[in-house]
Design a binder for these strands. Structure first.
Lengths: 195, 195
DNA sequence: GCAAAAACTGACTGTCCAATCAGTCATACT
DNA sequence: AGTATGACTGATTGGACAGTCAGTTTTTGC
């Protein structure tokens, strides 16, 4: 593999597991078998590397959702919400390091002073909120979801799913065991009783 | 103020804002006007200080809920759930540093190897889950909440509230603006339609 | 008032780490 | 074959940091 990609790969893993402050460049060098100075040849500073990692995560998330929607069909909006929730939980299991990274505090601190970082985070969370919002709008149009504000409701559903994923990655309890309940509660929260 | 308490106070603030790795003992010393060595007189290591801070947070949370329940009366279980959610959000505004600390990754990493830390976190999250679970059980008994598993539902409601708080402390969007929607969605999720 | 204990401190140490730099190696083009 | 460009590296540097220690000041008990 390309050394630059190897650094990004190891960087994603380390930043996700140990955070920005907890990761040392020499550790990263040792892990990849690449000389320390080589990392600084490809990435000017540690922060630059972090931003490159975050950009990759952003691209990965956008691509994943694109592929998911390209391959999926839904009966109605409510089923689309349920599908998106399942996909979120699938992704959280499959790409745990993405969510570990996003559940750390450092990206948000950095975003306060670094517009590039802020930009990446905005794209990621806009994507997250958007997929739910689109599903809710569709559900309202087809009558499967009752008359509720799409954007705000999308943010709350996102918070809920994100909260469950965080509790799982923190090993506080198992999200898998809650899957069925989560779906049922979401359905009850959104569904149109008149239909 | 007692120097030990001043150290704990500043420690809570710094660990919450900058994390364990991002906080330096000399910074803490400078902030409090206390000599660096004095901190190590009261707390053997940086980790010891962190545990003491977490213990204080734990005690504060338990005390807050005790006081809240001592001062509150609820018509039924569903209203109790709503009251608890409001109180959570109130606390998240009032004691932001507690939630910043709990939304960091370090405590959970430390908990994997340090049983004292694990103990504190368990007490905190058991408290959180318990208050919701009690409310749901009461609601099921008085008929205001439909027939759903109390513990699992409590965990999901907790995830949702915790998720909203996290999004707020990360400055991704404002929890206040979602308050009304959150309450309405929760009510819809739990309420017993037969009543 | 005094002795013992507790609280506190300045100066220091060894370690670790981000970043630099001068220079080597591989590749591509002429 | 020669050279220019990009990829890579070992050795080093300067600063920051957790933790120590020997000694001073303050508090406590009598």
């Amino acid at each position: 593999m390309n050394k630059k990609d190897a650094i990004l790969l190891a960087g994603t893993k380390l930043f996700a597991e140990k955070g920005f402050g907890g990761t040392s460049m020499s550790e990263l060098a040792e892990m990849t078998g690449i000389a320390g100075a080589t990392i600084f040849y490809h990435f000017k500073t540690k922060e630059d590397l972090f931003l490159a990692v975050l950009e990759q995560v952003k691209d990965g998330i956008l691509k994943s959702f694109d592929e998911y929607f390209a391959a999926s069909r839904f009966e109605n909006g409510l089923e689309m919400v349920e599908g998106v929730i399942s996909f979120f939980l699938f992704m959280a299991g499959h790409k745990e390091e993405w969510f570990l990274l996003l559940h750390r505090n450092h990206p948000y601190r950095l975003a306060e002073v670094n517009p590039i970082c802020r930009g990446y985070l905005e794209v990621i969370y806009n994507c997250f909120a958007d997929v739910f919002e689109r599903a809710i709008r569709r559900g309202r149009a087809d009558g499967s979801i009752r008359d509720i504000p799409a954007h705000k409701t999308a943010l709350i559903v996102l918070s809920m799913v994100d909260g469950v994923i965080r509790f799982k990655t923190c090993q506080l309890y198992d999200a898998g065991a809650l899957f069925g309940n989560l779906m049922e509660l979401c359905r009850r929260m959104l569904e149109n009783p008149e239909k």
